[in-house]
Amino acid sequence: MANGLKLAAAALGVLVLAAVSLFIGVSDVSLASLLSSAPDDRPVQVLLISRIPRTIALVLAGMALSVAGLIMQMLARNRFVEPSTAGTVESASLGLLTVTLLAPDMPLMGKMLVAALFALAGTALFMQLLRAVPLRSALVVPLVGIMLGGVIWAVTQFFAYRFDLLQTLGAWTIGDFSGVIRGRYELLWLAAALTLVAYVAADRFTVAGLGEAFTTNLGLNYRRVLTLGLSIVALVTAVVVVTAGSIPFLGLIVPNLVSAVMGDNMRRSIPWIALTGAAMVLVCDIIGRVIRFPYEIPIGTVFGVVGSAIFLWLLLRRREQLG
């Protein structure tokens, strides 16, 4: 049960980070001020309305995106695939833009679902492209995804430009949790539920990753597993894009880092991936809040630096192993 103990320690670490995240900010919230003030006073209200929702949102988004990345990597059988290298994020933004233009009064849930539908369609298109071409190198897969995303992004930008929505578009692409308050993050619980579903169905994705013939041979419905996996990924991406904006490469680097340490037993590594993802997002958000106190730097920018640096390391390290 050594793994269980380690897992508990890691969970404790995430809790500590979450606690740190609770007490960082311009408004004075500390244990002392909380204890000495009445429930209606400022410290308690700040904690309840802003700090706790933000921290929960960070943890949930980090977990869900990391696990979504893992599912994509299993299904596409490629280590370098995740929502932002498969056109999923861009498709979700296109969906969000479409619904903002055509039905601006739709409730957030409805908008999110439309975005998820677009994300699903975009990801399915990506998988179809992968099938259609004989692949020569594993690295072509993320390249195709990034370029497909770029093309979808150009379409999105064109319409956003025509209808003066470019600025709104910026808010969806650069993840930022500073606007998260009570009442504006609850959709993320849906992402958490989906992560749980992914955990339960983990073995199916592993099998599906071995190919259609193999999966059918084992008595599983390949198309159904594929649809389930892609739907989870699309929904999680849409939820995160709607509530906070995308965090590039998170779903790519976390599973790769965990697999470098733990190997590829998916059911065993999912809790680790979720915890690592949550910790990473928490740390980057804290950095963004501390580095230029009292101002804030969006997590999308901080993670852009951290994430792409780790991605580069993964790419170049892999080459040295091969060479």
Partner: peptide, 15 residues
Amino acid sequence: SLHLLVLVGIVFGVL
């Protein structure tokens, strides 16, 4: 590998 270089280049751009 050319693909590696392209991918590395794109990620460098992001960085």
